[in-house]
Design a protein around this nucleic acid. Structure first.
Lengths: 157, 157
DNA sequence: CCTGAAATTGCCGCTAA
DNA sequence: TTAGCGGCAATTTCAGG
C-alpha cells in the first residue's frame, strides 16, 4: 500500500462500490458487473490496493453475536498534549483489544474511541481500571450504543 | 443470515480472527492456518455467515483517498422521541450517503453519526441544510477526525 | 485463451452420546 | 444407532499470465 494519490474514473468507483458491498466477490463476476473482462478489472483492483485506496479486506463480525453485546463510544480528554504523553497514551490504546477504533479529534474532547465488551462489568473494568489510568487521561465520557441504525457501511465513492 | 444464536469454539474464533485480518484469504490457506482441511473450514464459515456472526465481507476504502478527507462524528439530539418522528429521522438518515454509520445512543445525545465529506463546504451543507432540517432534530454537535490512531479494526473474538 | 489453483459438493469414516 | 464433524476426491469455477 503505497501512499501515492491516484485518480479514479467511473469504472474504478463502480469496482469500489461492488467490493464494499461484497468483499469476497469473484473477480470474474465483479468484472461483468462493471463491464470489463477479468484481467483489466484485476489490474484496477491491484492498482487501488497498491495506492491504499483499498486499505484491506475484512469480514464484518457482529460483536453482539460473538459475546460482546456492549458497545460504546468514549470521548477522552488528555491533561497534557506533550508529545510523550500523547504517544504513551496511543501505545496504551493500541494494547487494548476492546478498543476497536480510535481517533484523534478536534473540539472539546481529544479522542473518540469505539469500545466493545462482554458485559457492563467488563466495560466498567476497562473504563475505570484501564482507560482512566492511561497516561495523561483527564476526563472520559461514555455513551452506549442502543441500536445500530446504519451499521458501518460503504463510503460513497 | 438467520438470527439464531450459535456457539463458537476455539477453531471458529480462529477463523474469525483470520477473516477479519484478511477477508479475501483463500479458504484453502485459511484452513491450513486453523488446522483443518478446506471442507470443514468452509462449512464453519457458512455456518457463521448463516447465523449472522459474519454479517458480510467488505473492502475497507480509505475515505481520504477517494476524495472524502473530511470525517466527523456528529451527535444528534431529537426534540421528540415519538415513534413517527424517530422513524422519519431514521428514514432521512438512510437517504444520505455521507452518513456512513448511525447509532442510537444512551446518554445526553440520542444519536451518533459518522459522516464523510469532500470538503468543509460539503460538510457545512450537510450539517446546516440537511441534518438540522431533518425531522425532529433539536441539536447537533460535530467533532472532526484529525487522525485515525486505530483504524476500525478487528473485534476481539 | 490456457493452465494451475481454488471453491464447492457428494460421499465415506470416525467418535461420542 | 444416530448426530456431528472431519477428510478425500471429483467437478465446476476462478485467478492470473
Amino acid at each position: 500500500m503505497v501512499r501515492s494519490t491516484i485518480s479514479l474514473d467511473e469504472v474504478d468507483r463502480r469496482i469500489l462500490r461492488v467490493l464494499q458491498r461484497d468483499g469476497r466477490i469473484a473477480v470474474t463476476l465483479l468484472a461483468e458487473q462493471v463491464g470489463l473482462s477479468a484481467t483489466p478489472c484485476l489490474r484496477r483492483i491491484r492498482r487501488m490496493e497498491d495506492a491504499g485506496v483499498i486499505a484491506r479486506y475484512t469480514a464484518v463480525v457482529e460483536p453482539a453475536r460473538v459475546g460482546l453485546p456492549i458497545q460504546a463510544f468514549v470521548q477522552v480528554a488528555l491533561s497534557s498534549h506533550a508529545e510523550e504523553v500523547a504517544s504513551a497514551f496511543h501505545k496504551a490504546l493500541a494494547a487494548r483489544e476492546e478498543v476497536v477504533a480510535a481517533y484523534a479529534m478536534s473540539g472539546g474532547m481529544d479522542y473518540m474511541l469505539y469500545v466493545v465488551a462482554a458485559d457492563f462489568e467488563a466495560y466498567a473494568d476497562f473504563a475505570l481500571k484501564a482507560l482512566l489510568r492511561m497516561p495523561g487521561v483527564k476526563e472520559t465520557r461514555s455513551s452506549f450504543v442502543l441500536m445500530a441504525l446504519k451499521p458501518p457501511g460503504a463510503v460513497p465513492v
